[in-house]
Nucleic acid binder design. Structure first.
Length: 505
RNA sequence: GGCGGUAUCGUCUAGUGGCCUAGGACGCGGCCCUCUCACGGCUGAAACUCGGGUUCGAUUCCCGAUACCGCUACCA
C-alpha cells in the first residue's frame, strides 16, 4: 500500500480518445483530487503497429478542453519522466532480464503461424504449464540451441511462467475480492524482440510500480488480466507495494448490445469523442462534443453520473462538488447504456445556467458563419430571451434567426391557420398605431395595443398570432413585445408592411 | 467453447430483510401557465429475469438456470 494517492490514466495513442476513456480518466481525476493526490497521464505506445500520429496531442487537447488538468504528463513532464512508454525501453529491458534470470519468465521462439496451427488443431489451446513443454522455447530447447537462435537473430518473445494450481486474489474496490486459479491463466507474452518493446502487461506493472501509483482505476475489460498483473507484481517482488485496483463497468451502446465503439456515434447521430477527429489515413471525420455545442461542464456532469451516483436526487454537480462527493462505494457494477437524450438534457441545463454574456460570446462565431454581424450587447439580449429553449449553442440560430434577419417566407401551416380575411386590415391599423407610438417600451406597447384590441372587440389570439407571423415568419418565439422592443419600431413596422403586401389568401 | 463479471421502469439509477401500494431523473402522454413555441409547475403510463432455498418476512442473503457484458493476440 502506498501512502500518497497517485493515479494514472494510460491510453494508447491509437486514435481519438473514446468517451468511455474520458469517464475512466474523470474518475481517476476525481479520486486523486479528493485525496489531494496526483493525476498522471502516461502514453502507452508499446504497439508500434497501431500507433496513430496526432492521437497523443488529441488526448492532451481533449483534457484541456474538459478542464481536467494533469499533474504529470509527457508534455508537462514530472518527477517520473519519461511518460511515454516507447521512451522507457531500457527500463523494461532491465526487468525482463531480471525475470529471465529468476526463472520467472522464458524465451519462446514459436512463430505466429505455429501458434495459429496449434490453436486450430487443439481446441481451447493455451500456452501454459501443460503445453509449453511441447513448444519451442528456452524450457524445451538446450542452452546452446537457445543461444545460437538468439545470436542468429531469430525473432522471439518473452513469456511469463505461470505456476499452475495457485489461487490468485485480486482485491477490487468496486467488486470486492475476485479469485482466479492460476491454472486458467496462460503464459502471456511480456516482451517482443521484434520491436524491443514490452507488451501492455509488463509495461503497465513496471511503470505503475516505478511511478508510485497507488490506485489503478481502469475499465472492466482489464479485470480478466488483473490476476496476471498480480502475478507479475509477485514475480518482481513488489507485491507489498502493489496498487489497489478498481475496475469500472463499461459504457454500452445505446441500442442493442455490446460496448460503445468508435463507429456507433456517427451512425446513431451523436458524438463519441470529446473533440472532432480527422483520421490521418482515411481523412474520415468523426464528430466531437465540443464541435456539437456541448459545454465541457455538461459532458463531465453527464459522464460522472454514468456509473456513479451520490445516493440522493441531485443530478447537477460542479467539478468541485464531484471531487468532494465521489466514492467507489457508490460506483455501479453493471455496464451503462449511453443515453444521448439525457446527455442533451444536461447540456440544456448548463446552457440555462450559463451567464448571457458568456453564451453570447460562443454564439457570435455562429452568427458570423451565417454572415450576420450584430453588437455583442444585442446578442446578449437575444440569448437571454432564447437560452431556455435550446440544448446547444448552435441551435440558438435556428430559434432566433428572426432577431437578426427578417423572415423571407411565411410558414404555410401557420398562414393557413392564422391569416384571416380581416387580417390585412387589422395589421394596417396596427401599423398606424405603432407609427404614432413615441414610447416604444414593451410595457407601453402592451398597454396601447391591448386597449386597441379590446376597444375594437378583436380576438386577442387572432391579432397577436398574425402579428407574430409577420415578425417571425412562423408560430413560435418569445413574447411579441420582447421581439418588437429588440428589433425596434421601424423594423417591426417594416415586417408588418411586408407581410400585408406578400401574404395572399 | 473456456474463464470472469453483471442482472430494479425503454434508458441512467435509489434501495444493503419489514419504512416498497419500489423513489428520482431522461424520454413519452395529459393538465395548468399562455398571443405562439418553448421554459416552468402539476400529473399519468412504465421495472424488482426465472426457479429453488434461508427466514415469521425477501428487490435486498445463498444456490442454480437464463440473459447480457468482457477477456480468451507477439492490441491496449
Amino acid at each position: 500500500m502506498r501512502e500518497r494517492v497517485r493515479v494514472r490514466f494510460a491510453p494508447s495513442p491509437t486514435g481519438p480518445l473514446h468517451i468511455g476513456g474520458v469517464r475512466t480518466a474523470l474518475y481517476n481525476y476525481l479520486f486523486a483530487k479528493q485525496h489531494g493526490g496526483d493525476f498522471v497521464l502516461r502514453i502507452e505506445d508499446t504497439d508500434s503497429q497501431r500507433f496513430v500520429p496526432g492521437a497523443e496531442q488529441y488526448i492532451e487537447d481533449a483534457f484541456q478542453w474538459l478542464g481536467l488538468e494533469y499533474d504529470e504528463s509527457p508534455s508537462k513532464g514530472g518527477e517520473f519522466e519519461p511518460y511515454r512508454q516507447s521512451e522507457r525501453k531500457e527500463i523494461y529491458h532491465q526487468y525482463v532480464r531480471e525475470l529471465l534470470d529468476k526463472g520467472a519468465a522464458y524465451l519462446a521462439f514459436d512463430t505466429p503461424q505455429e501458434l495459429e496451427a496449434k490453436r486450430t488443431s487443439i481446441n481451447n489451446f493455451q500456452y501454459d504449464a501443460t503445453t509449453r513443454v511441447q513448444m519451442r522455447n528456452s524450457l524445451t530447447l538446450s542452452q546452446e540451441e537457445v543461444q545460437s537462435l538468439v545470436e542468429s537473430g531469430a525473432q522471439y518473445v518473452v513469456r511469463i511462467k505461470i505456476e499452475p494450481g495457485i489461487d490468485i486474489k485480486v482485491n477490487d474496490l468496486i467488486r470486492g475480492e475476485v479469485v482466479i486459479n492460476s491454472s486458467v491463466l496462460d503464459d502471456k507474452v511480456i516482451f517482443k524482440s521484434a520491436d524491443e518493446l514490452p507488451t501492455y502487461h509488463l509495461a503497465n506493472v513496471v511503470d505503475d510500480h516505478l511511478m508510485n501509483i497507488s490506485h489503478v482505476i481502469r475499465g472492466e475489460e482489464w479485470l480478466p488480466s488483473a490476476p496476471l498483473h498480480v502475478w507479475l507484481y509477485r514475480s518482481l517482488g513488489w507485491e507489498d507495494s502493489m496498487p489497489q485496483f478498481a475496475h469500472l463497468p463499461l459504457l454500452l451502446k445505446p441500442e442493442g448490445n455490446g460496448k460503445l465503439s468508435k463507429r456507433d456515434g456517427d451512425r446513431l447521430g451523436f458524438p463519441v469523442f470529446p473533440l472532432q477527429w480527422k483520421d490521418p489515413k482515411t481523412g474520415e471525420l468523426s464528430s466531437g462534443y465540443r464541435e456539437s455545442g456541448y459545454l465541457p461542464e455538461a459532458v463531465i456532469n453527464f459522464l460522472a453520473l454514468l456509473g456513479w451516483n451520490p445516493g440522493n436526487d441531485q443530478e447537477i454537480f460542479s467539478l468541485k462538488e464531484l471531487i468532494e462527493l465521489f466514492s467507489f462505494d457508490r460506483a455501479g457494477k453493471s455496464g451503462a447504456k449511453f443515453d444521448y437524450e439525457k446527455a442533451k438534457w444536461f447540456n440544456h441545463k448548463y446552457i440555462q445556467s450559463t451567464p448571457n454574456g458568456e453564451l453570447a460570446q460562443s454564439f457570435l462565431p455562429v452568427l458570423a458563419e451565417k454572415g450576420v454581424s450584430a453588437k455583442p450587447e444585442y446578442v446578449e439580449k437575444v440569448v437571454g430571451l432564447m437560452k431556455d429553449r435550446v440544448s446547444f449553442v448552435p441551435e440558438l440560430w435556428q430559434q432566433s434567426s428572426f432577431f437578426f434577419v427578417a423572415p423571407t417566407s411565411y410558414d404555410e401551416k401557420t398562414v393557413k391557420k392564422r391569416w384571416k380575411a380581416e387580417s390585412p386590415a387589422q395589421m394596417e391599423e396596427l401599423i398606424a398605431i405603432l407609427q404614432e407610438m413615441d414610447d416604444f417600451s414593451a410595457k407601453n406597447q402592451e398597454k396601447i395595443i391591448m386597449k386597441w384590441i379590446e376597444d375594437k372587440h378583436y380576438h386577442l389570439g387572432n391579432v397577436m398570432n398574425v402579428f407574430r407571423l409577420a415578425l417571425v415568419g412562423e408560430g413560435k418565439g418569445p413574447h411579441i413585445f420582447d421581439i418588437t422592443t429588440l428589433i425596434g419600431k421601424e423594423e417591426s413596422i417594416k415586417r408588418l408592411k411586408k407581410a400585408v403586401s406578400s401574404i395572399n389568401l
